[in-house]
Design a protein around this nucleic acid. Sequence first.
RNA 1: GGGCCGUUAGCUCAACUGGUAGAGCAACUGACUCUUAAUCAGUAGGUCGUAGGUUCGAUCCCUACACGGCCCA
Length: 493
Amino acid sequence: MREHDPLVTQRIEKMEDLRRDGINPFANDFKVTHSTHDILREFQDKGNEDLDKTKERFSLAGRIISVRDFGKSVFLHIRDRKGKIQIYIRKDLIGEDNFKVFKKFDIGDFIGIVGRPFQTRTQELTIMVESVKLLTKSLRPLPEKWHGLVDVETRYRQRYLDLIVNPEIREIFYRRTRIIQLIREFLNERDFLEVETPMMQSIPGGATARPFKTYHNTLDMDLYLRIAPELYLKRLIVGGLERVYEINRNFRNEGISTRHNPEFTMLEFYQSYATYQDFMDLTEEMLANIAENLFDNLRFEYQDVVLDFTPPWRRITIKEAIMEYGEVGEDVLGDKEKLIEYGQKTGLQLDRGMSLGHLLGHVFEEVAEPNLIQPTFVTNYPTDVSPLSRRNEGNPEEVDRFELFIFGREIANAFSELNDPIDQKKRFLAEIGQEGETVEVSGLLDKDYIKALEYGMPPAAGEGIGIDRLVMLFANVASIREVILFPQLKTRE
RNA sequence: GGGCCGUUAGCUCAACUGGUAGAGCAACUGACUCUUAAUCAGUAGGUCGUAGGUUCGAUCCCUACACGGCCCA
């Protein structure tokens, strides 16, 4: 934006005029007694006969968002955090000098008003203003009132503008916070302890992803932004806290898309003496509870599809899912050569060096995942793609794990925790040794975590839920950027 | 990383496939004391994303780049 934007220059001149008249364009001595919402709630349904009896005077503040000027009287709408209300300013009521000052106010300015409510002829509850005060002069014009701000790039880069002119965007972020509050209440009620664990880790573990690397000067050491809190939360399980959770940011130095932001919010929770089976029940209950709270309904619309959160949700093994949606026999899934052949027919590029488990994972993602629209728990994951999960008692090639899919997207990942330190060390080393993977992606061996397990970690289940993706569902938006206030964009110039 | 699309006034959008750009809102001037996309009259506002190229002439055609969107990996 140019420095000499004439619209800005004009407003700076107005501001200087006001200063000359003794008006502080950035005053901060106005006391607010009511929000727009307070007034509307209390008086919306009252007639003027009742309203005229009101002796009380109300102080409100907000940003001017529209003006209808009649010369000696003016209608405006002001917006505050709770909504908007119409105000009516008359020259004969506030006096000629004050009215002259008021005429220098613009759309975008913050003002404080004192007045009383009345009903207009068109039955809109409005504040009759008895005094008006400039609180902040706005020096830049706002986007248009009718279409709002549409340009997606500007909406993300200047989210404040988006929030000012597109009230439905505010709603998304109110809802996001509400969802997180509901999750906290749900877990707190069940005696989970909310904790905070390091965002900066010397060994980035708990997931397979490329981390952001940074450096600590005084300690003279490399640090990584965490890709997951998992290994720290499980240390707390070793420490005997039994039930812990954390809602916080993870960082992954990977691609950006409608479903990926480099920093994203993750809920992870761990419960001693629970199993992944218990967590399927818990997850159903938790998410159904959110739907119930938000919509008074377990069915709601997402992107023209009705999602039904009524428990119980479908539970299906990864192999069953591939067989059903890929229309393929069980014999293929147990045979590496046949599976590669099948996978390539579906357009997948598969590497012969991959394990059977990894091949199954890729084929599942290709043929089944997009079809899992209604909430579906997928279970019986191969052990070699689940280095932190407990092996299944009956089949050590599989683990006691599920992933939850909704609308073809992974929403949650949970498992009974591997608490055998010997097996854990073996599996870490196998993971680190993965062909073609750099140390930065597959991680380093976290010896202290093994040591912690050696002291003994009680049997436990753990789960991670991607909060941003969850909010996308409940807010009915298609891009993760719509549920993150300041999504990552490339800097300009 | 690849493909497709987009970038024009503060904002939202036009410009009929080459002849140096228009509207609505916002702004400014004036009128108007119940409007709500207020109304009426007038005024001003543009390096057409950036850099090259083709051409007598480019917002338009070509190339590269930047940023963004969607899809794919």
